[in-house]
Nucleic acid binder design. Structure first.
Length: 404
RNA sequence: GUGGGUGUAGCUCAGUCGGUAGAGCGCCAGAUUGUGGUUCUGGAUGUCGCGGGUUCAAGCCCCGUCACCCACCCCA
């Protein structure tokens, strides 16, 4: 029997890889003063349809529980964040800097870098409208990627500001009600050749041309706030990977200002992370009127990218010491030695049944165990054992009480 | 949901013209019983995705089906 489509089994090596990624997420966030939080994996279906519309239910693991309540496995974290902040935001000092590392479920067609279950890192600053918050969040995202061994040369942080884009459209005298569909076209410019044509249909030839031109050459003079965000990003050392790019709008309707996506340079992968500012979402969803900026980074595209760059988790050490009883009579003393080691916090084990010493040594070195302890009758008569370093072959005889 | 590709050992894969299933890696055991990594020898492992059809004979050909991968749609 196989796992369900889009779901993954994590064998020890796979899990080690996932944990490696997650620990980079945790450390980058904690280092920047973000606090970890979490919520339920299963939520009322309504929590998600309220935010995204009833159609979203088709893309969720949604069902009725035994009490006939419509429920869904969470496809994202933001609605839960809004609920939890609604309950407590008044009591929390601002800005609120929270992050989560959680598992999500979406009933979609699995694809390259996309499954029906995945882990995602979410980092949000709530309660600050300042551009410096936007920059800090981006810096945290990049920091995690750096910790995994990616360099600035590997990364492109494409960044835009919907406010600037909207202002540009206003300057072109594009009516407000057309803005959203224009955003949609711009979002698709790189993937869909028809998008250019549709843009012309909406805007007319001259305005479309002007807009396309602006996309190629961002008029930073007309994007004051973005300029401040970029400046702060440079303070965080992101200068080498920043790319102001008006074409980044992101699909989400709720972004209000800064939007950004992080890509791998020269890789045919979708964005490894994406986010932006959503100042109205909290109040729109009935929460406190707090500004917010944040991003999400999933484990799947990131794993593909790391694999492509030959980056992997440093080899983990299952055992620090293998204790070898040299004959059948040493089984019990070997266990005593292991017990002593474990009580001192040293990961160690010994065979369940007598094993030839040469075989035990071979298995120890094959597994990368750095040292073994040999328990033989001669030394054990004086409560002593032989400690052997496998890398050098050096060994010494020590008393049980001197074991480290 | 639509289109394309792939399904053979634990993993990566080979398998010619249709003729009883292969390699490498890994795993297990051994090379005189208290000393490893290299090496050598031996061993185990398959519903050839599944079901049907053609044929004396199918991993191979035909039909169906399922799963996975890739692309589209979507992307919170």
């Amino acid at each position: 029997m196989q796992p369900l489509k889009g779901f993954r089994d994590f064998f020890p090596q796979d899990l080690a890889h996932l944990r490696w990624i997650q620990s980079a997420w945790h450390s980058a966030a904690k280092l920047a003063g973000f606090e970890e939080w979490d919520g339920p994996v299963l939520e009322p279906l309504k929590l998600f349809t309220d935010k995204s519309g009833d159609e979203i239910a088709g893309q969720l693991y949604a069902f009725e529980d035994k009490g006939e309540r419509p429920v869904a496995l969470r496809p994202e974290m933001t609605p839960t964040l809004v609920r939890m902040l609604s309950a407590r935001a008044g009591a929390l000092p601002k800005p609120i800097k929270w992050y989560s590392v959680a598992q999500f479920f979406r009933y979609e067609q699995p694809q390259h870098g996309r499954g029906r279950e995945f882990f995602q890192w979410n980092v949000d600053v709530v309660g600050s409208p300042h551009p410096a918050a936007d920059a800090e969040v981006i810096a945290v995202a990049v920091e995690a990627l750096r910790r995994l061994g990616l360099s600035d040369e590997d990364l492109r942080v494409r960044i835009s500001d919907r406010g600037a884009l909207a202002a540009f459209l206003v300057a072109l005298e594009v009516p407000e009600e057309l803005h959203l569909s224009v955003f949609e076209c711009i979002d698709k410019l790189e993937r869909d050749p028809a998008a250019t044509r549709r843009l012309t249909e909406i805007l007319g030839e001259s305005r479309a041309a002007e807009l396309l031109c602006a996309c190629d050459q961002f008029p930073l003079s007309r994007a004051e706030r973005l300029g401040v965000v970029l400046e702060a990003c440079r303070d965080w050392g992101l200068g080498a990977c920043l790319e102001p790019d008006l074409r980044i709008v992101r699909g989400l309707a709720y972004y209000t200002g800064t939007v950004f996506e992080i890509f791998a340079r020269g890789a045919k992968l979708r964005a490894v992370a994406g986010g932006g500012r959503y100042d109205r979402l909290m109040s729109d969803m009935g929460g406190p009127p707090l500004e917010a900026v944040g991003f999400g980074m999933g484990d799947m595209v990131l794993s593909l990218l790391l694999a492509e760059r030959g980056l992997e988790a440093p080899p983990g050490m299952r055992l620090e010491v293998l204790v070898i009883g040299t004959d059948a009579s040493m089984l019990s003393p070997a266990r005593e030695v292991v017990r002593e080691l474990r009580s001192r916090g040293v990961a160690s084990e010994t065979a369940y049944a007598p094993v030839r010493v040469s075989k035990a040594l071979r298995s120890a070195s094959n597994q990368g165990v750095p040292r073994v302890v040999l328990v033989g009758p001669d030394e054990w008569a004086e409560r002593k054992v032989v400690v052997r370093e496998l890398s050098s072959g050096q060994q010494r005889t020590v008393h049980l009480s001197e074991l480290d």
